[in-house]
């Protein structure tokens, strides 16, 4: 069928050095701390993973939303702190978010978390601008 504007799945596979199968994750997602907080390189690596692991096939190029919700609007169904986002990726969520814990090592998930949570958030809801249109 169809996929459309903004869709991007790039060439990159899991960055070299990652080892599959590191699936031990402590419970209590919100208490998890992101080892890459503030690490711009990790965000760039996460952006590449976002494409190569087909995240943008559902969430759209730039995580702006497609068949799955926007991750760049500053709003979250299941919590937007790093630990909650980690859990969403690692364990999956209802409505079809796959569990990537069996596919990606925890390090790679944290890079995805770093990318997603550092997307620039619009200052205003985009449709609100119509109020000002003459």
């Amino acid at each position: 069928m169809r996929c459309c504007k903004g869709l991007l799945i790039a060439a990159l596979l899991v960055p070299a050095g990652f080892v599959h199968g590191e699936t031990d994750v402590p419970s209590g997602a919100a208490s998890l701390s992101n080892p890459y907080t503030g690490d711009a390189n990790a965000a760039v690596a996460g952006e590449k993973l976002f494409a190569s692991m087909n995240c943008d096939g559902c969430h759209g190029g730039g995580a702006l939303g497609f068949t799955a919700p926007s991750l760049a609007d500053g709003r979250w169904r299941f919590g937007g702190d790093d630990g909650a986002v980690f859990h969403s990726i690692f364990h999956g969520r209802p409505h079809g978010m796959p569990a990537y814990g069996a596919i990606l090592p925890a390090d790679a998930v944290w890079m995805l978390v770093t990318y997603v949570t550092t997307r620039p958030v619009p200052r205003e809801v985009p449709t609100a601008a119509w109020q000002a249109t003459p």
């Binding site: 991007l8 799945i9 596979l13 087909n54 596919i103």
Partner: peptide, 19 residues
Amino acid sequence: SEDAAYIPGTPFVSATVPY
């Protein structure tokens, strides 16, 4: 187009297509 990685149950597409 870019290369696509096949992961069962996830999108297998690999293209940026603005209209």
